[in-house]
């Protein structure tokens, strides 16, 4: 083989490696995304039978924002609340599995992932039984007066947030576990040796060093939770519907493609803005390489 071809190959190699993934993304993500973008600018008076004309109707955006901002805001509110709850549950869990579980580690990991083996829908339906008005949980909460005698959990924001927390918890725990598991225990010893108490060691060493996992987990949790509609649909009431429910209905029930597409794009933009803002703050400097 002559040096020239070797050199050309080496120059092309990285592009060749990127090509399959890029082609896949191109065909199954970029093209549909552009189609969706075009659909969001269709003439809103069009219909399935008459067809839709691309009239660059940017007015679709303010229109859906005005009509559905409560659902949009709710999506972010619920996802944030669920994230907070998931962090409270998930960080200690990931920490315990990674650093304290010993030989139970693998079993516990399987337990974390196990719910993922069943369908999302079935899991959420199971929560309906757990949160049932006549179930043991509501009974217990009524007995201890955390709920009034006619209080309930189903069809309340609490149920939706609990459902979101439960369904997406593994997505938070797994990357967190991975980064906590990698954490060098000698660094913790060093911190103790340098006058850091347990709490200080956690704040100054464990927490910052688990940031990569924490950031990955937070994003993996937050993004799908914001776009979710199954939990609101099954565990909530109309007053808990999230933007996903609206998009679902726009595409499947109302057949209002411009609205559905515009709303999808708004959601995407809003999530992107939150993610970028988050990475700006939490990312760059805190995530060490």
């Amino acid at each position: 083989m002559s040096p020239v071809t070797t050199s050309a190959r080496r120059r092309l190699l990285p592009y060749l490696l990127v090509l399959p993934g890029a082609a896949w993304l191109g065909v199954f993500f970029v093209v549909p995304l552009l189609q969706l973008g075009a659909a969001s600018l269709y003439d809103p008076t069009g219909s399935l039978s008459t067809g839709y004309a691309l009239t660059w109707a940017f007015g679709n955006y303010p229109a859906v924002l005005q009509a559905y901002w409560p659902q949009l805001a709710r999506s972010f509110g619920y996802a944030a609340a669920a994230l907070a709850l998931a962090l409270l549950l998930g960080y200690p869990l990931a920490y315990a599995i990674a650093r304290k579980a010993g030989r139970w580690k693998n079993l516990l990991l399987v337990c974390v992932v196990a719910p993922m083996f069943t369908s999302f829908l079935v899991r959420t339906l199971a929560w309906k039984t757990i949160l049932s008005d006549h179930g043991w949980l509501v009974g217990l909460l009524r007995d201890v007066h955390l709920l009034g005698p006619n209080g309930r959990l189903l069809a309340t924001p609490v149920a939706v947030v609990l459902g979101l927390t439960y369904n997406f918890l593994p997505l938070l725990v797994l990357p967190l576990y991975a980064s906590l598991e990698r954490l060098d225990h000698r660094l913790l010893e060093a911190a103790g040796d340098l006058y850091a108490s347990g709490v200080q060691t956690f704040r100054r060493v464990t927490l910052p060093l688990s940031m990569p996992g924490l950031i990955a987990g937070t994003l993996l949790f937050f993004i799908p939770a914001t776009g979710d509609y199954i939990n609101a649909e099954l565990l909530g009431s109309p007053n808990e519907y999230m933007v996903g429910n609206v998009i679902d209905s726009a595409f499947l029930v109302r057949l209002d493609y411009p609205q559905g597409a515009a709303l999808s794009f708004l959601l995407m933009a809003a999530i992107l803005a939150v993610v970028v803002g988050y990475l700006r703050r939490a990312g760059t400097d805190e995530v060490w390489r």
Partner: peptide, 17 residues
Amino acid sequence: LLAAGGTLAGCGTRAAT
């Protein structure tokens, strides 16, 4: 890719009737 996608996305849909 974007350009190709844009072409594919076309300009609206035809009447389905």
